[in-house]
């Protein structure tokens, strides 16, 4: 089993949509609105790095389970990430002062 470092690999919105079971137009719209990370594409639509697949799944779950819209889900995930980082720093600081 080889490790594949392809999370930066740019995918078309079509591929991402198929992977997460969403419509292509939704992925395009989310990328255009900046709610998911995107990179410049060669054609008329943005490309999306593979790492976004997991982010998009989380957004779908938050939408399905909590009823938040995609804009809200994007903010929630940003905040959760920041909280995680702060928690890690806090643990580290507590450890240092013990």
């Amino acid at each position: 089993m080889m490790w594949t470092n392809d999370l930066d690999e740019p995918l078309t919105c079509e591929v991402v949509a198929k992977t997460v079971g969403a419509r292509r137009s939704l992925v395009v719209r989310l990328a255009q609105q900046g709610l998911i990370e995107s990179v410049e594409g060669g054609a008329d639509e943005p490309l999306v790095p593979r790492r976004v697949v997991m982010q998009l799944r989380r957004m779908q779950r938050l939408r399905r389970d909590l009823g938040v819209n995609f804009a809200g889900a994007a903010i929630i995930l940003d905040l959760v990430q920041r909280i995680e980082e702060l928690n890690r720093e806090l643990v580290e600081m507590q450890r240092r002062f013990e």
Partner: peptide
């Protein structure tokens, strides 16, 4: 499964298999 952990991973890194 056997996984090759690449050098340089960090807390929060993600590996796709």
């Amino acid at each position: 499964i056997e996984v090759n952990i690449p050098q340089g991973v960090r807390d929060g890194s993600m590996i796709r298999l």
